[in-house]
Amino acid sequence: MSTHDHGDHVHPEHGADDPHAPIDDFDHYRPESLLMEQALRELLMEQGVFTAEDIQRQIDLTESRTPALGARVIARAWVDDAFRAALLADAKPALGSAFELDLANTPELTVLENTQAVHHVVCCTLCSCYPRNILGIPPAWYKSREYRSRVVIEPRSVLKEFGTELPAQREIRVVDSTADMRYLVIPLRPQGTEGWDEERLAALVTRDSMIGVAQALVP
């Protein structure tokens, strides 16, 4: 797989098939970091701690969790009251059985429902806690100093930066994931989607709407 898809940061001297691809991105990273990664990986493989195949399988597993999975979950919750109730009551078992996901050895998950009365927005001020088992790796901004510092003290202003303006009477609840629980937001189902099937609805559910910095797309 190519690791050089950084717009204008492509290294002309290293093609995607370069056998030395592990050390890449000298534009972005200190050489010391890249050397450290390769040295650690080599030594840990030599010690039998893990194999190259373990690494690849772990990468594949991580990459298989994307916001598209979350969007399917939300669409199901919008159309299926029993599933939504199960999801809100105990998310991991509900997800495991409905979507055939192996969520063992992944963190606990709580699903929060946005309503006309309350809007949840999730963050992690201490590090980067995120419902990776459903949404994959968090976006860079979620891990940024700016988001982590500001969303707990000026959430409306932060939401506005994301283009999200909520009615004044809607209560905001900023959810700081400080410990072992991860949080996933069910955004409000947009009006004008009555009778839509899950696939059509899922296309309205963005990653950011499941973090709570945005609302679902309006058809």
Binding site: V152, E154, P155, R156, S157, A168, E171, I172, R173, V174, V175, D176, S177, T178, A179, D180, M181
Partner: peptide, 9 residues
Amino acid sequence: EAPYRITAD
């Protein structure tokens, strides 16, 4: 900002 709530674990 207008009143809001924060939750933390």
